[in-house]
Computed example of a mutant assay.
Amino acid sequence: MYRLEELRSALEMFESTIIESHQVFFYMCFFVNNQFRILVDQAAVGSQDLESTFRYNLTRTGRVVAVLDTWNEPVYLTRIWTVFEQFAACTLQIPVTFVMPEACSSIDRNN
């Protein structure tokens, strides 16, 4: 549901927090696992093992970068899958970083 500009800006904000100079690769599960097709249509391989597949990939990547689109009612926190992502990361003790597009830093948080 994010606009490409929001995602780009949020990832640039994340990039500015990286202290060490090294390559960063992003694994975006929606490119790999279409949860709707797996769970509703049961059309994809791995639907019976989605949780263990996700946990394996999460452990393999070693870090979560969660993109929030706004301060107030971010879309990320309204989806059960992303809440599960946070639960899995916490359970597996995977570090999580929350990032937002630069425009969010100038928004009046009281409104």
Results as ranks from 00 to 15, higher is better:
Cys29Trp: 02
Leu11Arg: 06
Thr17Ile: 04
Phe36Met: 11
Ile18Leu: 10
Ile38Ala: 14
Ser16Ile: 10
Ile38Arg: 13
Phe25Pro: 11
Ile19Trp: 10
Glu15Ala: 14
Ile19Thr: 03
Val24Gln: 14
His22Ala: 02
Phe30Ile: 14
Val32Leu: 10
Thr17Lys: 02
Glu20Met: 15
Gln42Lys: 12
Leu11Tyr: 01
Phe31His: 15
Arg37Phe: 00
Asp41Arg: 08
Met13Ser: 05
Phe14Asp: 10
Phe26Gly: 04
Glu20Lys: 14
Ser21Tyr: 14
Phe31Thr: 13
Arg37Asp: 05
Met13Ala: 10
Asp41Pro: 01
Phe31Gly: 11
Phe36Val: 10
Ala10Gln: 03
Leu39Ile: 03
Asn34Cys: 00
Phe14Ile: 07
Ala43Glu: 10
Asn33Gln: 13
Tyr27Thr: 07
Glu12Pro: 00
Asn33Phe: 15
Val32Gln: 02
Phe30His: 13
Ala43Met: 03
Glu15Leu: 14
Ala10Lys: 04
Cys29Pro: 08
Phe36Leu: 06
Glu20Asn: 08
Phe25Ala: 12
Gln42Gly: 15
Met28Ala: 15
Ser16Trp: 01
Thr17Leu: 10
Ala10Tyr: 00
Glu20Arg: 13
Met13Phe: 03
Ile18Gly: 09
Ser21Met: 06
Gln23Ala: 01
Ser16Tyr: 01
Tyr27Glu: 05
Ile19Ser: 02
Gln35Phe: 03
Glu12His: 03
Asn33Trp: 11
Glu15Gln: 13
Met13Trp: 02
Tyr27Leu: 09
Leu11Ile: 03
Met13Pro: 03
Gln35Asn: 08
Leu11Val: 04
Gln42Asn: 15
Asn34Leu: 02
Glu15Gly: 06
Glu15Pro: 09
Cys29Glu: 00
Phe14Gln: 07
Cys29Phe: 05
Gln23Tyr: 12
Glu12Thr: 03
Met28Leu: 15
Arg37Tyr: 01
Asp41Cys: 01
Gln23Pro: 12
Thr17Asn: 02
Ile38Thr: 13
Phe25Gln: 11
